[in-house]
């Protein structure tokens, strides 16, 4: 028997699930583990739903919980996270499409754990330098350093694919269908 709160929760989760799964997958690089992190996050959210449903920035709160779940898992099993991504014998990045998500995923896999985490937290989750440092338990200086290194490494790994397409540039001023 669903209560009104339960219905609200289902509505919220239906809208947020895709974004949360994408974030977790970018962070950990493994579909099953990403789903475990998302499930742990959303169960925690359910347990506090009666209190947090009225919070003005629910998305921000839920993202923090998700990052915290990932961090907790990372600290407990640092190597698992590292290894999930560290494929040293990857095939050369596909040259077919600049939007080839496999090429981006493979490039992410070659970044160090710290570089990947700061790029995802800062540029996919839109966390500030300070919030990223707090989430990762490192200093803001380290976040900046890792961001620089991560961006430089990603540029180099993606080569020509890094350059924005004309469509990208057109997309910026006005949204395209």
């Amino acid at each position: 028997m669903a209560t009104e709160e339960d219905l609200e929760y289902v509505e919220y989760v239906s809208a947020a699930l895709d974004r949360l799964r994408r974030t977790a997958y970018l962070l950990c690089g493994d579909g099953d583990r990403a789903d475990d992190i998302v499930q742990a996050t959303l169960v925690a959210v359910y347990l506090r739903w009666s209190r947090i449903r009225t919070v003005s920035n629910i998305d921000g709160y839920v993202h923090r919980v998700l990052v915290r779940r990932y961090i907790d898992e990372r600290r407990a099993g640092w190597a698992r996270v590292l290894l999930a991504w560290r494929h040293t014998d990857l095939p050369a990045p596909a040259a077919s499409s600049v939007e080839d998500s496999h090429a981006v995923r493979d490039a992410l896999a070659r970044l160090s754990r710290g570089q990947r985490a700061v790029l995802v937290l800062r540029y996919f989750c839109d966390l500030s330098v300070e919030d990223t440092a707090a989430a990762l338990g490192c200093s803001p200086g380290s976040v900046k350093s890792q961001t620089h290194r991560g961006l430089a490494a990603l540029r180099e790994l993606l080569g020509d694919q890094w350059r924005p397409t004309p469509q990208t540039l057109m997309n910026r001023p006005r949204s395209m269908p």
Binding site: R22, A24, V104, L119, Y123, L151
Partner: peptide, 10 residues
Amino acid sequence: VRELLGTVDP
């Protein structure tokens, strides 16, 4: 990098 991260599908 924002755009590229958005292309990765789980």
